[in-house]
Design a protein around this nucleic acid. Structure first.
Lengths: 228, 228
DNA sequence: CCCGCGGCTGAACATGTGGTTAGTGTACTG
DNA sequence: CAGTACACTAACCACATGTTCAGCCGCGGG
């Protein structure tokens, strides 16, 4: 519940805007922007609904404040413990499993923001894709990863997969016998995911070649650059 | 052209319930269940809002009817042109790119249903996961795919990735220079995806081993505390 | 020609939600 | 101590949306 409390502060110690923002981030992460209910957020924060407007002006204003907050926390976290370990995928997993509730909420929030095309979504994906692409280029350079014909698209794919895994909808989690997504499900899913990422799945190139042909012929002539 | 019209019928020829259902499927695929607006659906179908209740009883009833319809169409389509080609991933891609608008709407609908945990979502994922797992087992048996340590989890991963690709949110599509998801974006994404699926990405096993250890130590019995 | 019946409409109703505002208490300031 | 400023609340409003309902319209049967 308490998201991103600085120091050892408990919710009662925070200022009202901070309490509202924390509660709002939790609600937005769980329900998305449109379904989120301002009165429920206010109740969770222990204040009245009117106070939200007193401090944030509107629901949109609150959303923007939360966007800013989550973006800041996430990029901060990425900067400190960030790219030391290698892949963004693996990174996200480990952080998700090991970190406190906090991180889960923020990642969920980010996924919601991207799914609903929030103003901050652009910056979220820009950061994520940029960082992924950088990692892939570096990995290819130092030999720890295979060269990709389209690092940018690979980066987008990586972000997509990471996000999908971290926000796995309950029906899919139930297909694994769990009630919903949790550390256990994620740990289990990480195995085939990493198997895929280290050994691949197909033993021949036919599908890959088909995809390359499809892309080559589907691509408009204007955007042609150096081919793979 | 429009969604699931039998024969060459145009919308004006359909019965009112069918028109409503078609319009509803389109709206539900685009907006999800909770955001979908009955008056807008009615307007699109060229009828009054009241008629929806006359025929379907409630919004939920309409949802159920749409679920049934989409499930039927999708399984039908899967049965006819289904598993002949190989991978569910590749399959979905090709169908998406080649098929008329129709298919896109139905896939989007399914993704929405799963994301929102609709009653029909269970059956959707059951079908998809079952089919994927079957394909992977068969592929491993005939040597066209590598053996997986957890075919079930791999199947779930495959469904997850396919769904994520087919419902890529606009911000991620924009990271590739496109306005939103379309055949071109999908064709481009298919290349690194298939590269990943045939060659893998990492050149060593360290991350894979780490994931295996994590999973092995994270699954003692059934319900264990999430912290370790 | 009238009757009735079922598809269908349009307006009304109920509820929930974003947004506003008047007023209250409180803490700081002169 | 008086006053002011500000955080805060409760009641209220406007509006969207699911839902209901009384009735209209067109058509087939007496």
């Amino acid at each position: 519940m308490s998201s991103a409390l600085p120091g050892g502060a408990r919710p009662e110690d925070l200022t009202a805007p901070a309490k509202i923002r924390s509660a709002a981030i939790a609600h937005l992460a769980r329900d998305g922007f449109q379904k989120a209910n301002l009165r429920a957020i206010a109740a969770d924060a222990g204040v009245s609904a009117g106070l939200i407007f007193h401090h944030f002006g509107s629901k949109k204003g609150l959303l923007t404040a939360c966007d800013e907050r989550v973006l800041g926390v996430l990029t901060e976290r990425a900067r400190t413990a960030g790219r030391a370990s290698g892949s963004g995928l693996h990174d996200l997993h480990r952080a998700y499993v090991s970190d406190p509730e906090d991180y889960r909420v923020h990642v969920q929030y980010m996924a919601r923001a991207i799914a609903e095309d929030t103003p901050a979504a652009e910056r979220f994906v820009a950061t994520l894709v940029e960082e992924s692409e950088e990692i892939f280029r570096a990995g290819a350079a130092d030999g720890s990863m295979r060269e990709s014909s389209d690092p940018r698209a690979l980066a987008v794919l990586n972000v997509l997969i990471s996000q999908a895994l971290l926000t796995m909808p309950p029906p899919l989690a139930r297909a694994l016998g769990a009630e919903r997504l949790g550390p256990e499900v994620l740990a289990r899913m990480a195995v085939p995911a990493l198997e895929l990422f280290t050994r691949g799945l197909y033993t021949d190139d036919t599908l890959l070649e088909a995809a390359r042909d499809a892309w080559a012929s589907a691509r408009p002539a204007s955007s042609r650059k150096t081919e793979d």
